[in-house]
Design a protein around this nucleic acid. Sequence first.
DNA 1: TTGTACGCGTTATCAA
DNA 2: TTGATAACGCGTACAA
Lengths: 357, 357
Amino acid sequence: MTTRRATIADVAREAGVSPSTASVVFSGKTPVSDATRRRVIEAATELGYSGPDPRAASLRLGRSGIVGVVVGSSLKDLFRDPVQRVMMDGLAEAVAPFGAGLLLLRNHTDIENAPTLTTAPLDAVVLVGCDGPLRELLEAAHRRGLPVVVIEGDAGPGVPRVLLDNREAQRTAAQHLADLGHTDVAIVMLSTGAPTIGAEITVGWIDPDATADITIDVTRDRLLGARDVYPDAPALATAGSSIDEGWAAGRVLFASDRPTPTAVIAQSDLLAAGVIRAAEEAGLRVPEDVSVTGFDGLPADGLAPYELTTLVQAAAEKGRAAGEAVAAMLAGDEPASVLLTCQFRVGNTTGPVISAR
Amino acid sequence: MTTRRATIADVAREAGVSPSTASVVFSGKTPVSDATRRRVIEAATELGYSGPDPRAASLRLGRSGIVGVVVGSSLKDLFRDPVQRVMMDGLAEAVAPFGAGLLLLRNHTDIENAPTLTTAPLDAVVLVGCDGPLRELLEAAHRRGLPVVVIEGDAGPGVPRVLLDNREAQRTAAQHLADLGHTDVAIVMLSTGAPTIGAEITVGWIDPDATADITIDVTRDRLLGARDVYPDAPALATAGSSIDEGWAAGRVLFASDRPTPTAVIAQSDLLAAGVIRAAEEAGLRVPEDVSVTGFDGLPADGLAPYELTTLVQAAAEKGRAAGEAVAAMLAGDEPASVLLTCQFRVGNTTGPVISAR
DNA sequence: TTGTACGCGTTATCAA
DNA sequence: TTGATAACGCGTACAA
């Protein structure tokens, strides 16, 4: 026999009070006499009642304490990026104070029955790293009346965004290189969003005029920033932010059959780390022979001896801003978009051009 | 004026059918005539109704489609480890088919009001990487009547676990080194769970007799496996699985003031990668001068030129097994613990001892 | 195939 | 400070 789980009504009866009084004891929203409270608590322990059923409470209250995080890629891909990790941490931290947690939802999934925006009991939605069909997601959320916040992506008017000054920041780094005298500069880019034909070919030159075709804002904006200073710099696209991708790009850049650039602008610290390794392997010293700049400014694992010249972005703040936007919307306020700015940090991976080569 | 959101009753009225019929149209649990279905769907679109409210449904059905994942550390720490990333992917994939998603919950948090096992509308709980006060968590879950699964940790009898043959696997790798003739072997360990005094001191020698004090099963079991072959091998503890920690350990191992080991058993691939980098820096070639073994067997970023000799664990399978255990418990079945086994893979980071040194 | 009636467990409101 | 009442929105026996 499966004895029915005790409800607040059972507790109230056992304690000799009304259900509403028992409820109040648990929520604390109304003063209750000590004696009553004690009786209720006692009855609860007696019956093994461990507080209001969240499901019933969420129906009654109209909020579940759950914020859906729609991730564009698989979990393992998303969290491979330190920026995303820290960002998620900030997001979790920002929604926790109002009792909310993060429910991971994937955008595309071929799994039948998988939970979605429309089937999960959500209070709000945060879109992170979603490049493709934002429209559908937004529509689904809107029909549900769910507040939506987008992190680094465009969701159209009315949807608050958390943005970074990617272009300006990247321009700063490029200018730094220009000031050091570099003229022969290459760019190593994040994913362009172009479908990868065959998983093997991950690195490829970008047509100088194809800038507008890049659908991923981050990639495009950082490219534009670099091009603001070096309009003709060749750019190499990768499959994403990783040391290995940077390494692969570096091998192309430092191949003996072409002139070696004196500086490389990498669009992430991980890419920069890979480029540096490739340089080392090619017998080039950093920064004496090649200067390298990164982007992100988080402690990157595996970069140990170097301290990157990079743009420090407030990754945790990015998540926190999104969380606060969510909180504002749930409170009925009109949330504003947030533009966060990066800080340029000079490390030991950039130096002046040494003319005698 | 905030127009009330349409409910299934509104839709039914609009369509001229009963609420139950409308409900059935959406759940599909009972055949409905095409004409009726069409009318209902039409009414729904008309009213902007986008399916049953998940909150109400979850109260009614007694299940929310949410599996709580209690993580011991912060999100960014947890997901730094590729094994955890892949494991979470497997878990998400395994619970998706029955409409469930993962809600991230932190064990310790100083944030007031943060969601917990008792306040979140969960169907089940998975504990991952929780070392400390499991008892409290288990009790909370038990009082709620929530099924619990523990991944690599001991939750006492009755709680299904997903385990790895850490000791046996590590022994295999050690034996491989022994077969190659290595006698001077050092071990680089994962975190021992000992409180780090001052965040700076991350690497330290482990008292050979202190094995039993290691509270983290993974670390202890892999150590035991290595000691099965090399009972006296010196062991260096780190703060966790990362290239940087391995690098720091490697610097200690290859310091000029002590005899250099001919082989290093690292308890993770990331640690191994760091050890290799330290070896390179010390002017040692791998595997000619030093052999290095890892553990995990996932593609590790930043290891590019090498292919580790390592133990391949089915990380995704680990998550999937946990998800299936959850599914079984929700279905009322008695789920069994699962023991997964690693597969030894020989790469190019181990070789025979070269006597002429 | 459709409709009626009821309860899932809670909490806000208001009156006492 | 406490209690009665009425939703919250839905799913499902059961009867028709």
